[in-house]
Design a protein around this nucleic acid. Structure first.
Length: 115
DNA sequence: GCCGTGACGACGG
DNA sequence: TCCGTCGCCACGG
């Protein structure tokens, strides 16, 4: 039915909640969107995000802090640039998650419950 | 409808 | 730390 599109909406909304200068992981977004174990869905979903929605896809990384794209690829370089602009250090295609991981506060969690 | 593919991740080894 | 394996599942061919 329409459940798939619904999931996309939840994922985009969740990514939209990541603050500037912070990052998250595909798995974490999946969990927050109510889709535990569906990290791959989050990744595919990023590419489908409507441009006008301005989803900060570049703030979503792999669980270990690595950028999802191959090091040196144009996509990877673009993502690196966008992150650096926000003050997030990217070293060798990777970010220190302990330092930049977004830890949603209760207020933000409640905001997400709206969907 | 089966099958390979992936912007993933946890768990060994 | 760097692979290989396996679970996951929407998509396109």
């Amino acid at each position: 039915m329409e459940s798939v599109n619904k999931n996309y909406e939840h994922i985009w909304q969740t990514v939209l909640a990541i603050p500037v200068g912070k990052v998250s992981s595909y798995g974490q977004i999946a969990d927050l969107a109510g889709l535990p174990g569906r990290a791959r869905l989050v990744g595919r979903c990023m590419g489908y995000a409507p441009k006008e929605m301005k989803v900060p896809w570049y703030r979503v990384l792999r669980a270990n802090g690595q950028l999802a794209f191959k090091a040196g690829s144009s996509s990877s370089l673009k993502q690196t640039g966008l992150l650096q602009e926000e003050g997030v250090a990217v070293i060798k295609n990777r970010v220190n998650m302990n330092e930049y991981r977004w830890q949603p506060g209760l207020d933000e969690m409640l905001f997400q419950l709206k969907f």
